[in-house]
Design a protein around this nucleic acid. Structure first.
Lengths: 239, 239
DNA sequence: GCGGTCTTCTGGTCTGACCAGTTTCGCGGT
DNA sequence: ACCGCGAAACTGGTCAGACCAGAAGACCGC
């Protein structure tokens, strides 16, 4: 026979799994408030730090949420919290730029197609506001990187598929980290905003294929500028 | 205009995301030991409880592991461990499952197209071996879940795009738990293996569109069986 | 009844202490 | 010079007690 590895579980983990078990058995339903930490101390006969670390585990797993002054509540599972963009980012962290671009081309056009079909006026209004903020930042000579990225993410979010939107955000964050030095210089920034506007109008008009096509071309174009910038930078470095 | 919800992040969360960022930027690589808690106190100017809760967050996500007396170590990032399907999976509701399926439909057919174009004989040989192991496990009445999942992941990996393969694995890790609970019973498992074989042959023949089409149909079919199973499960619960 | 204040309660944080393992290092014997 | 052993230092795990800021609820005067 083979041996089982000895599991030396901390008290915090034991408390966490015990609480999780009770949540699963519907002792507390979504929306309910858990007993305050100072009560759990007595019932479980452990220190408060142990209780807090146990609750931290459940909070990290998006099973509960703590609010100072109110209490700790059992959460309803929500799709945008199943996947976290920073965690996905960690998994694909060592990817090369080309792979990121390719993955983006797989996801984003499809997401935008769905956005054309499912996007609500509220979501469109939010994106429009984002574009205005983007323009304001551009005119004020502030960084527009966040706005440009968020445009694409919100467009994907309008597909009502948070999984796709989250994965796209992970990709864009990593892409931005690799190329932010390059795109700054040119008058590319104005063209970028203009293209975003065009894409948005096509989506709002629910012009599915035109929007997807235009978007794909937009992605390829910015990548081309990026490669151009990268190569000229390499030449400069080599000299 | 509508307001954005105020995000009040605790110091523990800020510390955690700061540490996560440094791990992602390779300040510490997998296997490395993090500075001891009492040193992080000084560098981050927070109390030890805050440090400990931050590390607890990272430990829950399986990004680091703490060993009493030794220290806290960075772990190799693996989708299966970071996403914790064992716990999160139980909280996935039907709406989330559909989003995951939809995201899968965005990525996998595209990845398989690339696999047809770029897959090497070594990669195909590996997949073939996987299929044989799958069959052996099936005949021995062992769990085939890992094999079925890994087939799809390796197929995507043959696209030479690790980003797509990693994202697909993440999706499958999250859907598997639930799906296999429902699909386990039927004679579906033999049909699944057979379809995997067909897909593989089309890929090896580098028959791009046929492979992508067959794969998409395979995904939709299993989803249909899955939905069927889900609905009968609901009816049973309702009675 | 209503509005405002005061108390109480909640989670968030810090400090300092102790425990039980692990690691490190130096001392003593060979 | 080498080895072995034990003490000391160090690490994460836990507890206790304190204080804070914000939220909730009770109370009181109007």
């Amino acid at each position: 026979m083979d041996f089982q590895p000895i599991v030396k579980s901390t008290s915090a983990q034991q408390v966490a799994s015990q609480l999780l078990d009770m949540i699963r058995r519907q002792v507390w339903k979504p929306g309910d408030r858990l007993p305050p930490e100072r009560q759990l101390i007595e019932k479980l006969a452990v220190g408060r730090s142990t209780i807090r670390e146990a609750l931290q585990i459940l909070a990290t797993l998006n099973i509960v949420q703590s609010n100072a002054g109110q209490g700790t509540f059992v959460k309803e599972p929500r799709s945008e919290e199943i996947l976290r963009s920073d965690i996905i980012g960690l998994l694909i962290n060592n990817a090369v730029a080309l792979e990121l671009l390719e993955a983006r081309q797989m996801i984003e056009p499809q997401a935008v197609r769905l956005a054309c079909l499912r996007g609500t006026v509220e979501q469109f209004a939010r994106i429009e506001r984002l574009l205005e903020d983007h323009e304001a930042a551009l005119k004020a000579n502030l960084s527009t990187r966040e706005y440009a990225r968020e445009f694409h993410v919100q467009l994907a979010a309008a597909s009502h598929n948070q999984v796709a939107a989250t994965m796209l955000r992970s990709i864009l964050v990593l892409t931005d980290e690799r190329q932010h030095r390059i795109l700054g210089a040119a008058g590319f920034k104005y063209r970028e905003l203009e293209e975003h506007r065009q894409i948005f109008e096509l989506v709002r008009a629910r012009n599915v294929e035109a929007a997807a096509d235009y978007l794909l071309q937009h992605i390829i174009d910015s990548a081309a500028v990026y490669r151009l910038g990268y190569e000229s930078e390499r030449e400069r470095d080599a000299s």
